[in-house]
């Protein structure tokens, strides 16, 4: 059984944030979730992080230790999330960096505009 989706006016307004992660150690989607969640928690605390309504939608492995992905967040909190991402710098003893590629209103557009365009593996 699946929950019926909320009527349009009651849904959370969201934006999709495309990003890429470069790291020395290999990463999985779960690692990305905990890195981003941890960074938001560190920067703004649990209370501020809950406002952003964060979710890692999908990630693509683009070559050696490079991950591109799409992050979902609340429309009003895009800048908050963007500001928290630079504080991610270490993962399992290796260095790691997160860059945002762009913001979009749909997953499809985010993929077309930001993920596929710069995809290293094609």
């Amino acid at each position: 059984m699946k929950l019926k989706i909320l009527p349009t006016h009651m849904r959370n307004k969201k934006r999709y944030l495309a990003f890429e992660v470069r790291s020395q150690k290999p990463l999985t989607r779960e690692d990305v979730i905990s890195l981003v969640g941890g960074a938001m928690g560190e920067m703004y605390g649990a209370c501020g992080a809950s406002r952003a309504d964060l979710w890692v939608v999908k990630v693509w492995h683009c070559g050696e230790n490079v991950i591109k992905g799409i992050l979902r967040c609340n429309r009003d909190e895009v800048d908050t999330v963007r500001s928290a991402l630079p504080i991610i710098n270490r993962f399992k003893g290796g260095r790691v960096v997160v860059h945002t590629l762009g913001v979009s209103g749909t997953i499809k557009a985010a993929k077309r505009k930001f993920v596929k365009k710069f995809n290293l593996m094609g």
């Binding site: 009651m10 969640g37 928690g41 649990a46 992080a49 809950s50 309504d53």
Partner: peptide, 21 residues
């Protein structure tokens, strides 16, 4: 655990929104 707390708070927020409506 502290890095998952924001999820619980988001769920509370959602329930609160429905409660107000």
């Amino acid at each position: 655990r502290s890095h998952l707390r924001y999820k619980i708070l988001t769920q509370f927020r959602e329930i609160l929104k429905l409660h107000r409506k």
